[in-house]
Structures are given as C-alpha cells and as structure tokens.
Amino acid sequence: MTFTLPDLPYAHDALAPYMSKETLEFHHDKHHQAYVTNGNNAIKGTEFEGKSLEEIVKGSFGKNAAVFNNAGQHYNHIHFWKWMKPNGGGTKLPGRIEKKINEDLGGFEKFKTDFAAAGAGQFGSGWAWLQVKGGKLEIAKTPNGENPLVHGAVPILGVDVWEHSYYIDYRNRRPDYLKAFVENLINWDYVDEMFGKAG
C-alpha cells in the first residue's frame, strides 16, 4: 500500500488558539508529508510493499528502522489529526469510555493527570497514549515513532510530544501544551470509535 497524506479533517486554523494555523501547516503539510514520502521510498523493493499500514508497522519494528520510523509516524499522525477537533476536550465523554476510565484508571481527573504526566515524562521525542491491552485501559508512553501496536496493545488516543507539535505555540512549555490538548482539543467521539474497534 502506498502511503498518501490524508487531508486534515478541519481547517488549518480550526484549532487555534490551542494549536495554531502555523503549527498545523508545518506539522501536517511538512512533517507528516515527510514521513509519507520517506516511508514510500524506504518500502520500495522490500517485503513490506503491498502490505497494510498496520502490518508494516508491526512487521518492521526492530527489523527495518527506516521503514518502521516512517510507517509508525504515518500511522500515529493519521490518527492524531482525528483525535483532535475544534471545541474538543471538555468533561462530557461518551458513556462507555467514561465508565471504562472510571473502572480501569481511577476516574477522569486521575486519567487527565496521569496522561499529561506520561507526556511530560517522555524524555525527548515521542508519544503518550491511552491504550487497550488485555481488555483493560492503560496509559503508556513511547519514544520517537513507536506506538502501542508494537507492544501488544491498541491505541485509542495519542498525543504527539515531539517538540515540533508545540514549539511554535508553547516553546519549552510542554505541560501547557498537554493541558490544552486534554482540556480543549481531544475528540472523544473518535476515541470512542477506536475503543469500539479495539474490542
């Protein structure tokens, strides 16, 4: 499968002031595009040609860094755009997600604290996740292009903590970016959709 850059599901300026137009222009149009372009080049002539994105991510992990890094980031960013929306965040979650967060993660307030702490605690570039593993919700973090798929889990929410995600808007203040993401950007309907598919 040849990678292609998906359109943003909203206008570049739709997430301001929490994420600026300029940030989305660079992040989506340049960074994500580079993962697509470099991924397609790295896959050419390998066993991964013609496989699905998830198959490529899982199959290349630990075996082909050039393929994995770009395929992992392609997967991560495809979902990242959908995990945000204008007027997102808030405290009104779809019922089954709210119930599951209460059961597995000690409630919504604790989820918010722990998810932001995972993002702040990822040293260097990477991601923080809400994942389903063995039927339970967990909070996790991974470096660089890694994601829960290669650790036996399914991501249902992720936040990019590479500096390119927040440097224009927040400079060194990653915790402020994470707070804005959780309180004002998360598209809980898409989290719920991925939770439904994760089974």
Binding site: F26, K30, A34, G124, E163, H164, Y167, I168
Partner: peptide, 11 residues
C-alpha cells in the same frame, strides 16, 4: 533536538 532550530528553521 527540534528546540535547537525550530523557531528559525522549523522542519
């Protein structure tokens, strides 16, 4: 690290 160059050079 991206913090070393992002304000001037971005990606």
């Amino acid at each position: 690290w991206e913090h070393a160059y992002y304000l001037t050079y971005q990606n």
